[in-house]
Design a protein around this nucleic acid. Structure first.
Lengths: 234, 234, 234, 234
DNA sequence: AATGAATGAGCCTTCATTCAT
DNA sequence: AATGAATGAAGGCTCATTCAT
């Protein structure tokens, strides 16, 4: 039913077919509800073969998570220009992120929705991925602060909080953009492209960060100059 | 094992005990992996009683979702002062949100992580909750734009995108704050309080929004004045 | 839901209400599928009361069987005139049988369909009922043979077989007549009345019996005179 | 415990073993009381295999009913000689029926006792079987009437009633013969053979029918000539 | 006379996993 | 390289039955 039956396929290829089937099935059903039967059928092979190659359901899920994690990280990393200014790096990273999640919705669903919700072994794997991305963002924010000549006003905890907020906002937008995309016509030129979504994120986040680095803080009733402008605004 | 065994309890009370046990179990294991046996044991009753009162696993999960949704919405709604300025409303709403999610981490986990990942019947319920919150935020942003004298510069889609980003950021921070809390000593006075987290969010988001309303946009290389300053900055 | 709730009813009455509910439920669902919950609800009482009065599901079913058996036997017995000719007795007995089964379809369903199909304890009870009726019929056939001056030509086994055939035919017609009745309008004057059905049975059976007693037998190719006409034909 | 354990059996064979076990179990316990565990054990396999091959208890029961129905119909059909006289056809059909039910008592019990008593899905299946047989008999009676030169005196309803009576009588005799058989020694040469039972039926029914076709009817007090002998008696 | 609260036991069904070829 | 045959274990759900009032 799934793939066309082609016998005698080399192992490496078969494994990828199985992983593809697994990604789709895990995304659609969730880890527990996905059955090895369904995955095997979708991959066009018998169940014992899945076990021969991937050992167990748990191993299979882990392999899936790792493959999708690696692909996402690679996409983001390859999108940024190493030497550029921090804001450009952030923007191009976001663009890469949105583009990849839009192109691999099932992989993203597995990472974002399924892997976190099914107990320790998997959650850790995805937490590591997220931590890596958050660290990357935190680094960029630090670099940006330095570029802007801002010295030490942003406490580490504050930076970490901002990075988490930024990543959460990006995740939320990724989902929103995908849903919007699904609704429109497939070739809809109106749907928010990765570039547009990245721009929205930058508009939302960067300018506020900029001001934060300038020492301004929000307070009920208006802005306050938290610390005298020891931090040059760009 | 769970609660102290107290025999012959009126139905209304037992039902709440069961729902409490269910929240905890669903949060820990996920919908599929949670067994009715475990829930019943945790509630200190036999399984048939759970079925007698809550009908089925699906009904139980739905009831849990609705109870937790209602509690969250009530917490947020009761936190905002209806007549106040938009930024104050947003801030107090966030504070209510962070406080509630911190106090009810399992309920929040069920809503945020589990309900969305387990098929149509539940996902819709939570999608409705999220839509309600996003709508609330969108409304606040619109009001803020009006207050700021900003007329029409922010396209509807842009506002919606911002609202989604904001909600996503808040969700991410809620999780982050909770984890931080869990790790520290239980009574840790250092852990980010709801007030602190709300302040972080406001700092991250509000100032950027403010500038957006002022017509400024981020662009590679620096800020640009997208439209001549037709929108007074506060 | 079932009966109107009337509290404080004397035991004898309540028991009959329960038995009525049980007859209906057992007929509709079968012994195993009928739940004590449904019976109790239909009787308008709580389950413990059913247990208090009728002890157990098995006892309840037995009580039902005995009540319905007794009613059927009484109906048949009271329909025949003790002193009449054998054929008249048989005819009026059949009339009583068809009339009673038509008036008490649920009771008849329990006896005919349910009680026989659910293991030893109940099957025996109904077998006894059937044996009683078969014995009654056998007796009538014997009397008829004697009346007809037929002496000993009908072997006992043959008579017993005929009685069984006759009873089976009557049961089958009872069902058929009831179904026919259900289909027609409730007051349908066309549907086969008990009298008509009894007549059909008599036409079907009696005349053949008559000839049997006359010594004739069926054989491929035509009738044969099994024994020289030592048995006067009426 | 049931069959001798023989591992690795092809599916088609296993399925028949399972169906055999199911027939026996359903006949002994009834549909509801029969457990899949018992059936599986009797078939010498594990429960999951039963589900793998037969899908569900309901499907299993349906498959059983259809297999046994088909076998019974085939036995009866193959017993009659198509071109023969109506009475010979009826007699040989009955012989086939009694022989088959005697050889397959459990199959017959499932059809006759269990399937009719367990709700719509199954009852319909068996009702169809019975209707087929009744139709066959009705046809034979009609043919016999024509052969006998009887024109139209037997109303359709009357014929249908007679056919039902005949089938009911046959069913009753089948059960009676089986019980008798069970009680006697297994190889008892005295127990009523299918041939004998068929003869009893023919004696019981055919001669009466013959007279009915001759226009005679039973009436209290004696026979009457319902219509002047327009119908030649054989 | 009557009931709300509660449970032990069992059944249908499914699933991850292995064996033998 | 690949599969048809088979199962131990567990989970959702229901039911007859009892306890305490």
């Amino acid at each position: 039913m799934g793939a066309v039956k082609s016998k005698r396929v080399p192992r490496a290829v078969r494994e990828q077919q199985m992983l593809d089937a697994a990604v789709l099935t895990f995304a659609r059903r969730g880890y527990r509800a996905a059955s090895m039967d369904e995955i095997a059928e979708l991959a066009g092979v018998s169940k014992p073969l899945v076990y021969l190659y991937l050992n167990s359901k748990e191993d299979l899920f882990n392999t899936v998570i790792r493959r999708e994690s690696a692909a996402l990280v690679a996409a983001v990393r390859s999108a940024v220009e190493p030497g550029a200014a921090a804001d450009r790096q952030l923007c191009s990273g976001l663009k890469g992120f949105f583009a990849h999640t839009a192109e691999h919705p099932y992989g993203w669903a597995v990472l974002h929705q399924q892997a976190r919700t099914h107990g320790e072994p998997f959650a850790r794997e995805v937490a590591a991925l997220r931590a890596e991305i958050v660290a990357f963002v935190t680094e960029l924010l630090g670099a940006a602060a330095k570029e802007a000549g801002c010295v030490g006003e942003l406490a580490e905890r504050e930076v970490a909080g901002l990075a988490h907020a930024l990543v959460g906002a990006a995740e939320s937008l990724a989902e929103w953009a995908n849903v919007r995309t699904d609704e429109g016509t497939s070739g809809d030129p109106e749907h928010p492209s990765a570039k547009d979504t990245a721009a929205t994120m930058m508009n939302f986040a960067w300018m506020g960060l900029n001001q934060l680095m300038g020492g301004e803080r929000w307070a009920p009733g208006g802005l306050v100059d938290h610390e005298s402008g020891s931090c040059a605004r760009r």
